[in-house]
Design a binder for these strands. Structure first.
Lengths: 334, 334
DNA sequence: GCGAGGTGATCAAACGATTGACCTGATCGT
DNA sequence: ACGATCAGGTCAATCGTTTGATCACCTCGC
């Protein structure tokens, strides 16, 4: 900045005022001269110096449990893009319950960030207690936090309801749900939506199997379902895309034809869904938008503006593909 | 830090020396007292102040073209973890040829990072010219850069060779390659490995179809292959896992049974490969290790130590699954 | 002609940590 | 016993920006 000031023949404080303030009294020609010099020299203010002076780094942090999970990848993309359009950069770290919170300390206690996005799903993560002790501005993503905490979620309950209705409308009466672990917030909400629709259609309680949100989890859940010798469902809702991929593999292995023998509705649309075998009917959840809204909300929080938890307004959409059909005419058992 | 100094009854410079230096002359009891106070107060040095004073932020930046691509997700994971064990944090941004390099300027010109990992694959990305103009310490991942630039790659050529050999050993004589775009470095290397093995086995030049590294690209490439009415290969190498997923969908659609009619070897092992239909024989590439090694290399660069481009030492491994079999006894054409 | 009021710029004090220069006793060699 | 040496600290300048306080100059009104 000193170089810019020298080249433009003004004091560095004037340069600073032109660059940051904008509406202070500077002669138009001086302002133009400074802006020109800044441009010519390709000058950009040093982030550390600004951060030190302003106690504001222009950085947000984001904690996710798993980079390789496509759902989080989508959320990250939405958040990072929104952060960039707002002139910020994003520090990312993987943090699941097993990890030490060292990376949290590095972000928060060393004052590297202005606010934190927390997408770790488990309800007993060790950072949760740190979060409210430290009073860091933060927003939960895809997970409701404690009463005082803000969160951005998509309407998982409605998403599950949409998927369930699709099965019911196709004629299914015996439904099943392959769900995530019970201590994950989205799993709870998806189950609620599923059961809401069952009741609305006066259907009996359905089989629910809980397994981790992973392909392996879906595979195991599907095998568990097949092993149960009571009346098998003809329509199945699966709580995530990766689980659905695993479940389809288990069904293929067991010689069960989708959708002839069993209809399947998955979650979280994507390329993988359309190239699955068979192409998977899905409920598309607006994950990237959720990430973007979380950044917006966090921005309000750090600005001290009033802010409230939100549900992403874009409604979940059913993407019909080949994995849903009418139930088999003869009931498979009894 | 002032608080720590006051509480321990020393000068703040002494605290600083205890915390950063380590080997200067401080009485053991003083040192203990300071360390104790630091612990009790939960003090951590302010990153902006350190950054300003030392011109060293403790941060690396990483540019990837696509968060949702599982290959990059793996690389990111490896890099972020290694950075964390080295006491650093990682700034991530998505940057492909279409994007403006604004985020690059924000990272480099605002001095937010000590070094940059560049995983954008295209050979004509606009950041490349900026990189050597600015003389930022940087390391390319999964892509060779200009002569002066350092890079970490895995042995894609050998990986392709391993996959090709697996097909040849299963008895295949007519092979094909579904490859990525020709201007992507990994695609070039994979093709080289493929053709090397063809020659080694004295097989004729094979069909190669190039499409984007995506499920859609794999689907399109597979359809293109089927549309060619000349002798169809009986063994197929597919350059990425996502392409393979797409290709499998195209083959299923066309009624081609894998592996009876056609054997397929994919790349980049993962859950998705084992739950594909059929489970996909893959060449596992050590992506996370590549990310970690890139961080190590970059660390050497910023430390001014001598450093050279490396190939990840872990050799590519074949993961045999159900998608490879002997070629059909009757040759499909002629 | 002179004080009041503005405008457009500069001055200087922070922000928090680091580090070479400097200071103060105590110890040592002769 | 006295200067040199050294261990164990403190002092103060510095990194690059920001911003309230200050200042120089001009205009205007009476």
């Amino acid at each position: 900045m000193r170089d810019v000031a020298a080249a433009a023949n003004v004091d560095i404080s004037t340069v600073s005022k032109v660059l940051s303030g904008g509406n202070i009294s500077v002669r138009p020609e001086t302002r133009a001269r400074i802006e020109q010099t800044v441009e010519a020299l390709g000058y950009r203010p040093n982030a550390s110096a600004r951060g030190l002076r302003l106690s504001r780094t222009g950085t947000f942090g984001m904690l996710v449990p798993d980079f390789t999970n496509p759902v989080y990848a989508q959320i990250i993309r939405g958040a990072v893009r929104e952060a960039e359009t707002r002139g910020r950069v994003m520090l990312l770290a993987e943090l699941d319950p097993g990890h030490s919170p060292e990376v949290y300390l590095r972000l928060v206690h060393e004052r590297r960030i202005d606010g934190l996005l927390v997408a770790t799903a488990r309800s007993h993560s060790p950072v949760l207690s740190l979060l409210d002790r430290d009073e860091v501005p933060h927003v939960f993503i895809n997970r409701r936090g404690a009463a005082r905490s803000l969160s951005v979620i998509s309407d998982d309950e409605e998403g599950a309801a949409v998927g369930t209705r699709a099965l019911i409308q196709a004629g299914h009466r015996r439904l099943g749900l392959l769900n995530g672990p019970v201590d994950i917030d989205t799993a709870q909400r998806r189950r609620a939506g599923f059961e809401r629709e069952l009741q609305a259609a006066s259907l009996p309680p359905a089989t629910v199997v809980s397994r981790p949100y992973s392909a392996r989890g879906g595979y195991d859940a599907a095998r568990e379902l097949l092993a149960q010798h009571c009346t098998r469902p003809t329509g199945l809702l699966v709580a995530t895309l990766t689980m659905a991929i695993g479940a389809l593999a288990a069904f293929a292995e067991a010689g069960i034809d989708i959708p002839r023998d069993l209809s399947v509705v998955g979650f979280d649309d994507g390329d993988l869904a359309s190239f699955a075998h068979p192409p998977l009917t899905c409920v598309a959840m607006p994950h990237d938008q959720m990430g973007a809204m979380a950044v917006n909300l966090l921005e309000r929080v750090v600005a001290g503006e009033p802010a409230r938890s939100v549900v992403v307004p874009t409604p979940p959409r059913l993407i019909p593909r080949a994995s849903v059909a009418a139930p088999p005419p003869s009931r498979s058992i009894d």
